[in-house]
Write a protein that binds this DNA or RNA. Structure first.
Lengths: 85, 85
DNA sequence: TTGGTATTTCGAAAATTATCGAAAAATCGC
DNA sequence: GCGATTTTTCGATAATTTTCGAAATACCAA
């Protein structure tokens, strides 16, 4: 199980989070945004889900990914705490 | 050249930054805090320096590492901007 | 300059991560 | 249930990162 820092270390995963800032996307829509295989993107999505950076819901065959701001907020607050103890 | 996210993805490097929160440390003092070889710690320090997360000065034979809060502040502000565009 | 201390660089091995094609799983509509 | 669509898992390979011991570098003191 990867931690949130390692999850964010990957450029593709950061781009996925950036995408999700505007609205939720299905897995297929996210795959379309990258020149990577569906298998690879699915792997990145599973990392983002395991680290709770995104939420998922199912809609028929499709899986919808949405940004979970709580985790990034926690990270930001952790940084603030680190800098101003 | 590693980016700041990848630099922070490593637990040892995060612990080094945490150490430097209290005061500057020499390379040797930092090595003493970990059960890792000097070569390995030196590598981590070079990553932290390249990504500007720490500053260095020389004092005779010793190299002193200190926290550079500017980079972490930028990261924090970037997160804030990401969350509240 | 020589010797001593502190640190970094080099070269290689081990561990982890990213990537893919193919197969499997989940869910729908009929 | 069956076929179609969407997504994930599997198994393997490539790429990257961590780690170390040994050698090299940097600096000082005598």
């Amino acid at each position: 199980m990867m931690d949130v820092w390692s999850a964010l270390a990957d450029e593709t995963r950061r781009e996925i989070l950036d995408l999700l800032r505007s609205r939720p996307y299905t897995a297929g829509e996210i795959v379309d945004q990258f020149s990577l295989s569906a298998a690879t993107v699915s792997h990145h999505l599973s990392v983002l889900r395991e680290t709770k950076l995104v939420n998922t819901t199912r809609r028929a065959q499709t899986v919808i990914y949405s940004l979970n701001p709580a985790m990034l907020r926690r990270l930001m607050n952790g940084l603030a705490e680190f800098l101003n103890p």
